[in-house]
């Protein structure tokens, strides 16, 4: 059998070596995002909307390209294109974090919260699917659902995004219960670390949470042109989304698995990463259980 008849995987690796291939030692923060601003990168914020004229966003939102997904009384998905507000402030907070890290990235609001509680998982899914269809470079999803029946549709959309070259960044859920889509390998799941430095993130060796980023007492932009101190994995995810936007702007050729590899290689502290990010560690479980038991014992029996 001649060399040209062989399947690609069986040919000599030297003949397949890509030009400019790097070794892991080359993957430093300076190589990854040094001098990058996010220019040329489009980031979708799937959330409660974005207050586009917030003074701390400096006009980085493509207002006319946004979409508001709701479920009508008949149970059908309704998509409204164009400007919309932020129903709560959370989407503006996520947008502000991404913008603070990647100031030249263009942001688009995919509003899926604020249209009522009915069919919210369907609105999440449709909003995410729209962002994947639109080919956003980075998609931030600081929300999720614990409804198991939605796992497969989310799985398929996230896989589609992965193969279409969208990096989907999700907030891990603190609860010890499956939450989707943060559990899937095709997304990048993020929980909080203790850092105040927005560029200081950690790799977590115990998936499904893969990275830890600042999410405690974060000063974030909020609805009404204000700012607020906020804590939650919701605010850790956009830190990774922002850094990913920087990497993407400098290295647009990278695919999602390569982006994850660059993030891993540039994580501040791989060796000392917490054992169970986004969940209570065994020590914390013991401490929390003791505190809860003590609190309950002091209360005595509850009134019926």
């Amino acid at each position: 059998m001649g060399d040209s008849d062989r399947p690609a995987y069986s040919r000599d690796s030297l003949s397949l070596r890509l030009p400019g291939t790097l070794s892991l030692d080359d993957l430093t923060p300076e190589w990854a995002w040094g001098g990058a601003t996010g220019r040329g990168v489009r980031v979708a914020i799937v959330d409660s909307g974005i207050e586009a004229d917030h003074p701390d966003l400096h006009g980085c939102v493509d207002v006319d390209r946004g979409i508001f997904v709701t479920i009508d009384s008949a149970g059908d998905v309704v998509e409204a294109r164009g400007p919309h507000d932020d129903a709560f402030g959370h989407g503006t907070a996520c947008a502000g974090i991404v913008h603070s890290l990647a100031p030249d990235a263009r942001l688009t609001s995919v509003k899926v919260i604020g249209g009522g509680l009915g069919g919210k998982a369907a609105a999440f899914l449709r909003g995410l699917a729209w962002a994947v269809d639109e080919g956003f470079d980075v998609i931030n999803l600081s929300l999720g659902t614990t409804k198991r029946e939605w796992a497969l549709p989310f799985y398929e959309i996230c896989d589609e995004g992965y193969f279409r070259n969208s990096l989907i960044v999700t907030a891990a859920n603190n609860i010890v219960r499956p939450s989707f889509p943060s559990l899937f390998a095709s997304v990048t799941s993020v929980a909080c670390n203790m850092s105040r430095d927005p560029f200081r993130f950690h790799y977590n060796p115990e998936p499904p949470t893969e990275f830890l980023a600042p999410g405690i007492d974060v000063d974030v932009a909020w609805r009404g042109g204000s700012r607020m101190s906020s804590t939650g994995n919701s605010f850790a995810a956009p830190h990774i989304a922002g850094i990913a936007a920087l990497i993407r702007s400098k290295h647009p050729e990278l695919r999602p698995f390569q982006l994850k590899t660059v993030l891993w290689a540039t994580a501040a502290n791989v060796v000392e990463a917490p054992r169970m990010a986004g969940r209570l560690s065994r020590t914390m479980q013991r401490v929390a259980s003791a505190r809860a038991s003590a609190a309950l014992s002091q209360l005595g029996p509850a009134a019926p």
């Binding site: 919260i113 929300l143 919701s234």
Partner: peptide, 12 residues
């Protein structure tokens, strides 16, 4: 918001 997003949050 928390009921919709299914994400814990602490704000001031």
């Amino acid at each position: 918001f928390v009921l919709e997003s299914d994400q814990p949050i602490a704000i001031a």
